[in-house]
Amino acid sequence: MRHKNKFVLLASLLAVAGGVGSNVALADQSTDAIAKYREMIADGNPSELFAAQGEDLWKTKRGPKNASLEKCDLGLGAGVVKGASAKLPRFFKDTGKVQDLEIRLMTCMETLQGIDPKTVVNEQFLKGEREKMAALVAYIVTESNGDKINIDMKPAEMKKMYELGKMAFFYRSGPMDFACSTCHGDTDKRIRLQDLPDLRSHKGAAAGWGSWPAYRVSNGQFWTMQHRLNDCYRQQRTAEPIYGSDVTIALSVYLAATAKGGTVLTPGLKR
């Protein structure tokens, strides 16, 4: 029963493509055409609209302490934004934690502005403080576009996170017994005409990790990496992880470490 379900779900995921007859055939002949489509929309990525709001927010005084984020240390020193996200997640001595961009921003919002992290963690994606977070993220990742993915794996805490992330990636759970690797552990997998990168490989991880956060043309929304991962857990039919919880950071460390040396192409433009 369980296996049958799983088969049906995978089959339906693989087959969904509104109103198109033979997907497999179309998929093969259309890969080039779709590449051309992506090229045509690449100029004028609406992420720019979010990035502009984010840059404004970065400089805006707010919160109980009425301060801006301009002194926030994203790992390269207070206020340095350029190149910062290419080197995240990283181990931060001041918090004693491995943090990704969003969680680091939460720390800055708390220490500099006095904004309670709970107002972000307990919010929904695209709403309230999380909407602001997404704009900040759009701004910051734009400033690493073209850099090399280069996270510092030397600290023991990073190595621990990497191992945890690798485990999480292959850990099967949920009613369908899916792991991340079920959908992202093949060289030639396609869902809804979307090439799914093999995230276990350097090339696949570089393509996947390196092009998120991204603007999604299907819904006109800007998604952070936390949002991306959260949605994959939904696709996996498992309980959604808490925003910024260890497993999300660990998965990010695993992906970024596997992608190390690849090129940052953020903000991306995705289906």
Partner: peptide, 20 residues
């Protein structure tokens, strides 16, 4: 929210790109 307007002139022609 603000628009993003980019305009560049080249060889006597100006190209304008607007994101709203």
């Amino acid at each position: 929210n603000p628009m993003k307007i980019r305009a560049a002139s080249k060889d006597g022609v100006t190209e304008v790109k607007v994101l709203i």
